[in-house]
Structures are given as C-alpha cells and as structure tokens.
Amino acid sequence: MDPFNKRIRVDKLIGSLLESIKYAEEIARENQAEKLIVKGKLQDLPIFQEQGFSLEAKIDQFFRGTDMYFFCKYYSSERRNSEHWLEEDDVLQSVQDKEVSEKTAIMLPKPYRLKELSAEDVQAMALLYQTVFEIYPVPLHDPVYIRKTMEEGAVYYGVYFEKDLVSAAAAEIDWEHGNAELTDCATLPQHRKHQLMKILLVQLEEVLKKHNIYCAYSIARSLSFGMNASLHSLGYKYRGRLTKNCFIFNKLEDMNVWVKDLSAH
C-alpha cells in the first residue's frame, strides 16, 4: 500500500493468478489508487494482457534466477500519459551512446572519504536527502525512518567531504529472492564532478557479491542524465521504463529500470 505515490504494488502472488489480480484491483479501487503494479513472470503475460495490464519493464534473474516483469494498470488517464516520454528517449539515447567503462578504477580525491553509514550518520543523511530532493517516494528526510531501514537490513555507504556528508547510496537486499535494489542515490550538485556515485555503487556491488547476491538493479529518474549515465557506464542494462511511477524530485516521474548480473563481473 503506497498512498503517498497513489499506487498499489503486489510483490508476490500466491494461488490463483486471476483471483489474485482481481483482488488486487478491488484493493486499488477501494483505495482510489491511480496505478497498480504487479511483479509477475513471463508465462503470465497473456492473463495480464486479458485483464488490461501493460508490460513496462523487467528485472533479469529477480526470482532466484527467474526473470521478473512489471505488469501495470492505470485508473486515471492523467497518470497513464507521460508528457516527457520523447525527452526521456533522448536522454536514454545520449546515455547509451557513451562507452561502458566499468573496469576503470576511480580514485577518491582528498579530502573525500568513503564510509559505511550507520546510526551515527542518520542526521547527516536526512540533511543530504532533504537538500537534494524536494520530494522523495519514501521519507528519507526523517532520521527515524532511515534508522529503521538500517535495522531491516539496508546497507548504506556515503562519501564525506571533511565533516559534511555529500553523497550516499543504499542496497536494499531481498534475501528471499536473492536480489538487491541499489537506491536512495544522492550527491550534492557541487560535488558531482568527482563521480562519487559510481564509487558508491561499485562498493555496494562488492558487498552484495560477498553475500552471494548477484541480481542487482536500480530504478532511476528517466530525466536524470547523470544517474542513468552512471549505471550504463558500470555495465547495467536498460530494461524498460515505468510510467509516472512515483513522486520524486519535484513531480510524478517516469523511472528507468537498469539491471546487472554481478556474477559476470
């Protein structure tokens, strides 16, 4: 249940697929959701199509080696239609025209320092997220929420410039299905020239590999050249776009899905 983003998301289906879909639709309508997202498998595509869903993106090997597909249905025309789709296509094209340079080691210039973030950093993290994002799909401006995600197993890394936290990112691990989302990526604008986010993502990938998690994915704002370029350059593959998926930055935004098989790197 995600009232902030006016959507319902179904992460796991049990029993009859058709009955599950109809039950999810009932909940969506009762809660006046504008979008219903169901994580399904390719063999279920015909049933989802019959029920009016569209296939928007996929994540390779999400379900312990089996691919996952985002099936989506909309309950308002405004939510269904994106005003920025062609502009986002241009961003994606310019990103994919760049070379993949994942093998290149990036040195962290002094006085920057890399740190695994813990409870002692939550105030600094909240301040960073407040500064970078006017709005965000989850309450990362709240130190209590950040501490709760840490307790639930999210791994955060950040970069400090002297005493200030200037960049941060997280890996949210799904132990049941063996995947992880790289998320909550933020860098202060004046520090973006040093490729700090790429350094953080590489560090998080190493953590995941130590835990035998090889399906890594990230969902980035489709209008953000920098974030999409970072993922592409690290060898992530574009796997689709989620229309008006969540409130982020300053409005409802389309989100690009990027996937990487860490076992191949």
Rank of each mutant, 00 (worst) to 15 (best):
88 E>K: 00
117 L>Q: 09
130 Q>M: 04
147 R>T: 01
104 T>C: 01
161 F>Q: 09
107 M>N: 14
158 G>V: 08
143 P>K: 15
110 K>G: 00
162 E>S: 10
104 T>Y: 00
154 A>Q: 13
121 D>E: 06
158 G>K: 07
137 P>N: 05
120 E>D: 13
101 S>A: 10
105 A>E: 15
139 P>K: 15
145 Y>G: 00
142 D>P: 05
160 Y>F: 15
125 M>P: 02
90 D>Q: 13
162 E>D: 12
164 D>R: 14
114 L>Y: 00
120 E>A: 13
117 L>E: 01
84 H>A: 05
157 Y>I: 02
98 K>C: 10
91 V>L: 12
129 Y>M: 04
160 Y>P: 11
120 E>V: 14
130 Q>S: 15
97 D>C: 01
136 Y>D: 02
132 V>R: 02
102 E>T: 03
128 L>T: 00
136 Y>E: 10
160 Y>I: 06
111 P>M: 09
142 D>Q: 15
154 A>R: 14
118 S>N: 15
95 V>C: 14
155 V>Y: 07
91 V>G: 09
112 Y>K: 09
154 A>F: 05
161 F>N: 07
82 S>E: 06
130 Q>Y: 04
129 Y>R: 00
154 A>K: 13
161 F>M: 04
101 S>E: 09
131 T>A: 12
82 S>K: 00
87 E>G: 08
116 E>N: 03
148 K>V: 02
141 H>T: 14
130 Q>E: 13
144 V>Q: 14
163 K>R: 06
91 V>H: 07
101 S>N: 12
102 E>Y: 13
140 L>R: 03
139 P>T: 05
148 K>M: 13
150 M>S: 08
160 Y>K: 05
151 E>W: 00
102 E>V: 10
162 E>H: 11
102 E>D: 08
151 E>I: 06
155 V>H: 11
136 Y>K: 09
137 P>A: 08
86 L>H: 12
86 L>Y: 06
132 V>P: 01
154 A>D: 15
142 D>N: 15
159 V>K: 00
147 R>K: 15
156 Y>L: 04
134 E>R: 09
87 E>K: 11
131 T>H: 09
100 V>D: 00
158 G>Q: 12
112 Y>N: 01
85 W>E: 14
129 Y>D: 04
113 R>H: 10
162 E>I: 12
115 K>G: 02
